[in-house]
């Protein structure tokens, strides 16, 4: 998508060629087309490709399910029924699991738990990584050196492996899961935030603020942060996907969210053995794939939206 050879906007000159006479006044009175922020947001939303729309609608559905889980689920999260591995029926839409819990209800509660944990983790990772990165970018010097080298070392260990090691030490509970993954993921956030912040820090308006005598907080919050928001928002989407998949993978391995909390990763693991009965009961065999598909669809949806957002905010243009 990158197209650096495309014309800069300057090449497209305004069209008032009738004004032949040059004067400072005419240059000064040139008015460029302007719109309010809301108009611009609506305009670009209207032009969003179909994939971005699908993504946004899907994300909205997931959010509604997660928020209203207790209202939508027919049964309780840990309610146990008499028959384990019950087939799909009117009573249990997707049957029951190995100890007789309603799969459909657990899928709905799983949205709340899995997405909630992934979201909390991503937010924490951004708070840690983003905060440190901004400090490093503005102060530079030793602070930057030490933080960057530390991040290099932490990133030299594959994050899933690191997470496994730390879980073996701290045990698998939701708080330790969130903290461990957030800390590990914050290294990636740090790298990106530092890189984009560095591009802004070298700009002259930051130097101007420094020459004016502005403090660190002002420079970070008012001069840098607003200018790095678009890449950070996109990165938030991507990091969310990554965290979401990591949490799911850990739960699938039996090391993440622990029972009886409903969670998509462990649901796959618990019902995986049903797959081998595909020739006799295809519906039952599909059961373990439902939570896996729920994970995949949300990730694809977020990726669709991020792709469009990145394409739009980076100002990249495709050839036509």
């Amino acid at each position: 998508m990158t197209d650096t050879t495309a014309k800069t906007p300057d090449e497209f000159a305004p069209t008032d060629a009738a004004e032949e006479d040059y004067s400072a006044a005419s240059e000064v009175s040139q008015v460029k087309l302007r719109r309010t922020r809301r108009e611009r947001a609506w305009l670009s939303l209207r032009k969003a490709p179909i994939s971005a729309w699908i993504g946004m609608v899907l994300i909205a559905i997931y959010a509604i399910v997660a928020i209203f889980a207790p209202l939508l689920a027919p049964y309780g999260e840990a309610e146990v029924f008499a028959q384990p591995y019950a087939p799909w029926s009117a009573e249990h839409v997707f049957g029951t699991d190995q100890i007789g819990r309603d799969i459909f209800s657990r899928l709905i509660y799983g949205a709340r738990n899995t997405i909630g944990i992934a979201l909390a983790t991503t937010l924490l990772a951004f708070a840690i990584g983003g905060g440190l990165a901004l400090t490093a970018a503005v102060l530079r010097g030793w602070t930057d050196q030490i933080l960057s080298r530390l991040v290099d070392v932490l990133m030299a260990i594959p994050s899933l492996i690191f997470a496994l090691m730390l879980l073996s030490i701290f045990g698998s509970s939701v708080p330790s899961l969130i903290c461990i993954i957030a800390v590990l993921d914050s290294t990636r956030v740090f790298r990106l935030t530092r890189a984009v912040a560095m591009n802004v820090v070298v700009m002259e308006f930051v130097e101007a603020a420094r020459l004016r005598g502005e403090g660190l907080a002002w420079i970070m919050r008012r001069e840098i942060l607003p200018n790095i928001m678009p890449p950070l928002v996109a990165e938030f989407g991507l990091r969310f996907c990554f965290v979401f998949l990591t949490v799911a993978a850990l739960s699938f391995l039996g090391l993440g969210i622990q029972p009886p909390t409903a969670d998509w990763g462990s649901m796959v693991r618990d019902n995986a053995s049903l797959i081998q009965f595909a020739q006799y009961d295809l519906k039952a065999a599909l059961t373990p794939l439902l939570p896996a598909a729920a994970i995949a669809i949300l990730t694809i949806a977020v990726n669709f939206v991020v792709d469009w957002f990145l394409h739009k905010t980076s100002g990249l243009k495709d050839e036509h």
């Binding site: 996907c241 998949l245 799911a248 993978a249 699938f252 990763g265 796959v268 995986a272 797959i275 081998q276 009965f277 595909a278 020739q279 295809l282 065999a285 599909l286 373990p288 794939l289 896996a292 598909a293 994970i295 995949a296 990730t299 694809i300 977020v302 990726n303 669709f304 792709d307």
Partner: peptide
């Protein structure tokens, strides 16, 4: 893009369902 969005175990179980079970 779709493939990278899927958890590995999803891909794995689909393959198992199709090529080992059905």
């Amino acid at each position: 893009l779709a493939t990278i969005s899927m958890p590995e175990f999803f891909v794995a179980y689909i393959l198992i369902l199709v090529f080992a079970s059905l």
